[in-house]
């Protein structure tokens, strides 16, 4: 737990040393890292590879944005609606998709996410489809704090990140988390040990979906935009990539994965137009030389105490 606090202290400290642009970048990174953590819970700990997590991110985002825009909800209830929408969607998806496993699970989640994407477009009258809509500045203040300022944004992102980060860290140390890992390692044996694997997996999916929903709602809240591009396949593959890069099944891996990927694109695009080429080569090299992700490999090679 101390290590987790240390990570948060570093993030807090970064605010005071980083130049303005990178403060903004880290606000974004922390929001995306929440998403990655939600994904990691299902993929890294439970061993279920979903290709449709963007639907939970989008459910949180639209649950927040639509209630603000259409019903004039204030931030707190709208945010809560977003989380509930994501958790409810995860419950339905889980109920259906968890009948499958392995690649079939990947495909079913992928197709459900595609369905959600099309539904968003279909109700374009309310969602403005692919264009999306803006959550106005006036609608983005909480308890009298205008969350559109750079400082407020950073701390809002940090607080939400900290809550999710510590909660996930706690969760995976509890018996619940250990059982998820048992399912990942060998579902058959976990079942013989008397665990209700189906129920545990459903719970993992709901929590994972809800955390992803928090990320989506936070994005809408802090960056003022809600759009269908966040529900596309691309945004389902991102968290998988981040988690694999950082290290699946580690609590800090998702954050590291997001930071790595963000700055890989950010820095390389400053030098060349062909930054995707660089990103591609970097990914290939990473799989060759850091097979367990950055954190996973470091933990194995040098620092066994990494969380």
């Amino acid at each position: 737990m101390t290590l987790h606090i240390a990570v948060l202290v570093v993030l807090l400290g970064l605010f005071f040393v980083l130049p303005a642009y990178h403060v903004g970048a880290f606000s974004r990174i922390m929001v995306l890292a929440i998403y990655a953590m939600g994904y990691n819970l299902l993929f890294g700990y439970t061993g279920l590879l979903s290709l449709g997590h963007a639907m939970f991110f989008a459910a949180g985002m639209y649950g927040f944005g639509l209630t603000v825009n259409l019903f004039g909800f204030s931030v707190a209830p709208a945010f809560l609606t977003g989380i509930i929408a994501a958790a409810a969607l995860a419950l339905i998806v889980g109920y259906l998709a968890l009948r499958t496993a392995g690649v079939a699970f990947m495909i079913v989640t992928l197709m459900f996410a595609q369905t959600v994407y099309l539904v968003i477009l279909y109700f374009g009258e309310y969602t403005r489809g692919d264009e999306g809509f803006v959550v106005q500045q006036a609608q983005r203040s909480f308890a009298g704090i205008d969350l559109t300022g750079e400082t407020e944004r950073y701390f809002a992102a940090l607080i939400l990140f900290a809550i999710c980060f510590l909660a996930v860290a706690k969760l995976v140390q509890m018996p619940f988390g250990k059982r998820l890992v048992a399912i990942r390692e060998n579902e058959e044996r976990a079942r013989m040990l008397g665990y209700d694997a189906a129920k545990l997996k459903l719970h993992a999916l709901i929590i994972s979906g809800a955390v992803s929903g928090i990320a989506g709602a936070t994005y809408g809240l802090l960056f003022g935009y809600v759009g269908a591009s966040f529900s596309t396949v691309q945004y389902s593959i991102f968290p998988l990539l981040w988690v694999l890069l950082g290290g699946a099944g580690t609590t800090i891996g998702p954050l590291i994965g997001v930071i790595f990927m963000f700055y890989l694109i950010d820095i390389s695009s400053g030098y060349t137009d062909a930054y995707l080429l660089i990103a591609g080569v970097a990914l290939v090299l990473l799989t060759l030389f850091a097979p367990l992700g950055l954190v996973g490999t470091l933990r194995k090679r040098a620092f066994p105490w990494l969380p």
């Binding site: 694999l244 062909a274 930054y275 995707l276 990103a279 591609g280 970097a282 990914l283 799989t287 060759l288």
Partner: peptide
């Protein structure tokens, strides 16, 4: 070289996707 490890193959092929596209 990644021994067809499922996870690593996904990342590696995403990398290939970027390279080919760009």
């Amino acid at each position: 070289r990644v021994n067809y490890d499922p996870d690593r193959t996904i990342v590696a092929t995403i990398g290939m996707l970027y390279i080919i596209q760009q």
